[in-house]
């Protein structure tokens, strides 16, 4: 069956069955998030999953749109989420892959062997969140200065100085 870019549900089912058949336990869950089919897989398998989706003849997700880390400090045991957005250009199919892991072990397999574009994207995530990408050829800071000793996008670094007392925000939202 030809996959249609408008039928997100069919795409979701197709990718899910393929991932389940290939990785079994490695596949965790899936859902349709607004207009993106979203799949959660085991962290250690991410490179294999991306490679599998790249090589699969029908799916052929051969374009890495973007990558972003999300920090959930209150989510015990799964403090970090990393999302990858993949695109199949000929058929215009887009999916999102997510992995969750704890902040006590921030090692993630690098996908630079599949996508050259992942090089700087992973460096950016390392720079801002301190995610260690195993197998990355040149994992060092990219936008911040090299001397910086923390990862500023983590939620514990509030943007405004927490010691200020002249600004009281408790009346309005957070």
């Amino acid at each position: 069956m030809e996959l249609n870019s408008m039928d997100k549900q069919a795409l979701l089912t197709a990718v899910e069955s393929k991932l389940k058949a290939q990785f079994g336990e490695g596949f965790i869950s899936s859902k349709l998030n607004v207009d993106f089919p979203e799949f959660t897989v085991k962290r250690d398998l991410i490179c294999e999953v991306v490679k599998f989706l790249y090589d699969d003849e029908e799916l052929a997700f051969q374009y890495l749109t973007t990558m972003a880390t999300i920090h959930y400090p209150d989510n015990q045991g799964h403090e970090f989420a990393l999302m990858y957005q993949l695109h199949n250009l000929p058929n215009n199919l887009r999916i999102r892959i997510k992995i969750f892991f704890s902040n006590s072990d921030v090692n993630v397999p690098s996908i630079t062997s599949v996508f050259s574009a992942a090089n700087w994207m992973e460096r950016q995530e390392f720079d801002f969140f301190g995610i260690i990408f195993r197998g990355h050829p040149n994992l060092k800071r990219i936008l911040n200065m090299d001397e910086m000793n923390y990862h500023p996008m983590r939620k514990e670094y509030a943007l405004e100085d927490g010691t200020r007392e002249d600004k009281d925000d408790q009346m309005f939202g957070r």
Binding site: T65, T66, A68, I70, N119, M121, G173, R174
Partner: peptide, 30 residues
């Protein structure tokens, strides 16, 4: 090229996370 905004809202007055896909950043590495 593709300027993308990946936005997560937790219902608060500000985004919980905003990621910008910046085409320059991605292609300049080539």
């Amino acid at each position: 090229g593709e300027v993308g905004y990946y936005l997560i809202s937790d219902g608060g007055r500000t985004p919980y996370r905003l990621h910008m896909r910046r085409p320059c950043f991605i292609y300049y590495q080539a």
